[in-house]
Design a protein around this nucleic acid. Structure first.
Lengths: 332, 332
DNA sequence: CCCGGCTGGGCAAACGTTTGCCGATCAGTA
DNA sequence: TACTGATCGGCAAACGTTTGCCCAGCCGGG
């Protein structure tokens, strides 16, 4: 049988309420009693039953998170950052995987809400198919979207400033002498695909880069490989290929290589996200690093704000990324 | 105010206990009442408060997991598998990151125990420094170790059969004509380092491979790079280099490349784990794939067993890996 | 007609906390 | 001395469930 606050109170010779107050500091308790209670607690090895506490206070000290797929290397980094950001205030992360399926995602969201999490951080699987479940759960508990967002829902969002990232890339490519660039990215099912596409044109124009028609598929290495072929079939290659994320970029590199095109000697390639393997790939990938820690902090801050402040206009926070130059755009 | 079982009972015109029994099926309830209760629950959109339920039943339907570092690409795959395995029985995973620090790990373990998780799945940070905290928490809740284990604690463990993995690698290397091999792995702080070292010699001998003195450092790409240099300094390279995990192997490839040694043309390299980037690397890495799903299922099974069966001798379950042959050992 | 057993509904007590309220004690002031 | 207010301990009621126990009703057997 675990030791309860009742045992502590008994050993300290005080009432349960006094013990509770002495331990939690909810109200001042005489110094002598306080020491007696804390001594008793230590002696007995008392540790609070968070469940009972949560039932009473309506606060679990737990934040739920749902990611589309944890094995997608972008998310572990984010999870880690959020876990760290939360642990600063003694909270825990309850993590779920949506298995890339909006139906699974809906179940997970409900399960987390049933567990009375204090807040929910969600990277929605789909910009449209995830909307209903997200809206439903947002009615019960503060929700912050991260990385991706659903359309038609007035929910907070925190992510990277895609336009800024593309400006960084365009600037860098211009610096190393590229004149013509083409974007290979994901289509508009995901919000990031949409905004990276939107940001590309202006960024290129700003640095006087000539662009060709973008190739839009899906985030994934396979699409990158295929896009490389399509690109070669289209005629002479551009000076640089801008990948919508690191996986696409890596696929492009692989596809070009298979055809005897060398990176970076014949064509430059850039990624987006700075997922773990971007540095490990060969050639190491020039990319744009998402500010994980900042994103995480911002998510947590918005959750706290939502709890404190009640209803407000949804906030959309786009944080500035940084450029990471590696071998894939460095001519030796 | 959320709708409680009380509201459901009221609307159905029955007592709270009947409502509870009708919904949970804990005891048979007349068919008419059952339908009335379920109809009321649906109409009101009732969803059980898991906290209250857990407080009463002493079962949270939540399993805690602590990993050394979620951004280490091996763990997301494991987390995903375990999450999936648990969701089959309607349970949730409460994930924590130990930030590679036994002290943080201890805090996380306690925090999970305080939240009354039904079980704990832990990949200990350190074979020795993690032992005390793990033993302490194991006194309160069933614990299963995964991947790594601590010495001097009688706790269940589930992981991969390192010896079998090395036999697969040795056999494959012998098949492709290698005669001399050397192991580059991690030292004995981690249990896997120890057992992979132990398995290497016999596996090589079985396939009549000549071995040289192993190089032992730590899991990580940097050590691989350094080891490649050490190896070259030592004299003529072996036919094949066996990495203790994929990161080391990739580091070795990089180190060799930098010195103008080609993989696989000049020397073969293998990894271990089949982390996500192993397939993405260039050359794609021949490696041994951990059976994530099996490991996950086994962890969950052991936890359930521990809850049901009470105290028993600790079980150590080593599951057979499979060989994945890729470019790093394929001479064209 | 009586009795025993079974079915199924409801009361109320838990689970381990927190907290509103009451009242006791004590110091300070008139 | 009496009164006021502040300080602080304790009682007991919550939080939302589940479940042990009791009891009513009913059926079948003797």
């Amino acid at each position: 049988m675990r030791v309860t606050i009742r045992d502590v109170a008994q050993r300290a010779g005080v009432s349960v309420s006094t013990a509770s107050r002495a331990l939690s500091g909810a109200r001042p308790v005489g110094t002598e009693l306080t020491t007696r209670v804390t001594a008793a607690a230590r002696a007995l090895g008392y540790r609070q039953n968070r469940l009972a506490s949560a039932l009473r206070t309506q606060r679990t000290g737990t934040v739920g998170m749902v990611v589309p797929q944890i094995s997608n290397p972008f998310f572990p980094a984010l999870v880690e950052a959020i876990e760290r950001s939360l642990s600063g205030s003694g909270r825990q992360l309850l993590l779920c995987d949506a298995q890339r399926d909006p139906a699974v995602e809906a179940v997970r969201l409900q399960a987390l809400a049933d567990r009375q999490v204090d807040g929910l951080i969600v990277a929605p699987v789909s910009a449209v198919a995830s909307a209903d479940a997200l809206a439903a759960v947002a009615a019960e508990v503060p929700v912050v979207q991260v990385d991706r967002y659903v359309t038609d829902a007035d929910l907070d969002w925190v992510g990277v400033d895609d336009a800024a990232g593309l400006r960084l890339i365009a600037g860098h490519l211009a610096d190393v002498g590229a004149r013509t660039v083409v974007l290979v990215s994901a289509g508009s099912e995901s919000s990031t695909g949409r905004s990276r596409l939107a940001g590309f044109g202006p960024a290129a124009a700003r640095h006087r880069l000539t662009t060709a028609e973008p190739l839009l598929g899906e985030y994934g290495i396979d699409w990158g490989v295929r896009a490389a072929d399509l690109l070669r079939a289209r005629g002479p290659l551009p000076d640089a290929i801008v990948g919508g994320n690191d996986e696409i970029a890596l696929g492009v590199v692989r596809g070009l290589r298979a055809a005897g095109v060398r990176v970076p000697d014949d064509v430059l390639v850039t990624g987006f996200d700075d997922a773990g393997f971007a540095a490990l790939a060969d050639p190491a990938l020039t990319t744009v690093r998402q500010p994980h820690a900042l994103i995480a902090d911002e998510c947590v801050r918005l959750l706290d704000l939502a709890r404190a402040g009640g209803e407000q206009a949804p906030r959309r926070i786009a944080l500035a990324p940084t450029l990471v130059v590696r071998a894939s755009t460095t001519r030796s």
